[in-house]
Amino acid sequence: MITKSLKQGLTFAVIMSFLVGCSSSSTQDDQTTTTAPVVNENINDRVEEQAPLETIVYFDFDQATLKPETRALLLAHADRLKSSGAATRLEGHADERGSREYNIALGERRANAVRDFLVLQGVSASSLEVVSYGEERPLATGSDESSYAQNRRVELKY
């Protein structure tokens, strides 16, 4: 009986070790396939590159001079335009104060200031188009300083 018990015990031990060996190798295979991190930095870079930038540059009353905070925004646009080569329309606008002719000229001076800055940063001048709408396309209707400030702008249209 001891021999029969010993045989049964050894058989049981062999079967158990076989089962344990099978389960540990499949668990190990599962762990390597499920725990291996998948990192693709290029996707993250593309998402950051496609993040939207503010496309409106604002100006002070009767001015076509870029503000310091505007320059930082335009540097980001310049980097994007240099890498993509996309054609861009620079639309100059003015508030309602002044004559129609004066505001068309002021909108053009503003758009040209943006174009000149972008060209100095290495953007191809041939990819930039300047258009002035003067006071004809206001963002805000109203005859107060808040409305005027929103209408003194250049919009970058890709």
Rank of each mutant, 00 (worst) to 15 (best):
G98D: 08
F59Y: 07
D30G: 05
Y58E: 08
M1G: 14
G98F: 07
I2L: 10
V20R: 07
L73N: 02
H77G: 02
I43L: 07
C22Y: 13
I43W: 04
P52V: 08
A51I: 03
D45S: 13
R89S: 10
L128K: 01
T70P: 01
I2K: 11
E96Q: 12
R89I: 14
T3K: 12
G122C: 05
Q150S: 09
R153A: 09
A105T: 12
Q31K: 11
A149P: 00
R100W: 09
Q63H: 11
V14F: 08
E136W: 06
A94G: 03
R80I: 00
Y148M: 12
Q121G: 05
E41N: 11
T11W: 11
E41Q: 12
S25E: 13
A111I: 07
K67T: 08
A13H: 06
L74P: 02
S99F: 11
L90M: 03
V154K: 05
L53R: 02
L73F: 03
R152I: 01
Q28C: 00
H77V: 01
S84L: 06
S132W: 03
Q121H: 05
L19P: 00
Q150I: 00
I43V: 07
E145L: 10
Q150V: 04
E96V: 11
A86M: 10
A78N: 01
E48K: 10
N44D: 12
H93R: 12
D29I: 03
A111L: 09
V47L: 14
V123M: 04
V39L: 09
A78L: 03
E96H: 10
M16L: 15
S26W: 13
F59K: 04
E129L: 15
S25D: 11
S147H: 05
Q28R: 10
T35H: 13
N103V: 06
M16F: 12
S17D: 06
D29Q: 15
G85L: 02
V130L: 05
V57T: 06
S23N: 14
E135R: 14
S124R: 13
T55Q: 14
E135D: 15
F59W: 04
Q28D: 10
A13Q: 09
E91N: 01
R152M: 04
A94W: 02
T32S: 09
L10H: 09
V123E: 01
L19T: 07
G98T: 09
G92P: 05
S124P: 00
L139G: 06
A76N: 05
H93V: 06
T88D: 04
T88V: 14
S147W: 05
R137P: 00
T27L: 13
L53W: 01
S83T: 06
G107Q: 07
S127W: 04
L118G: 04
T3F: 13
N103G: 07
L81C: 03
G9R: 15
A72G: 05
L81T: 02
E49S: 10
S132F: 03
A72K: 08
R153T: 07
R153K: 09
A105C: 04
F18A: 13
R137M: 13
A86S: 14
N42S: 11
E49F: 08
N151P: 02
V39R: 12
D62K: 15
F59V: 05
N112E: 15
T55L: 00
R152F: 03
A36I: 07
L106A: 05
S127Q: 12
P68T: 02
I104Q: 11
A87W: 07
V130D: 07
A94H: 01
L73I: 06
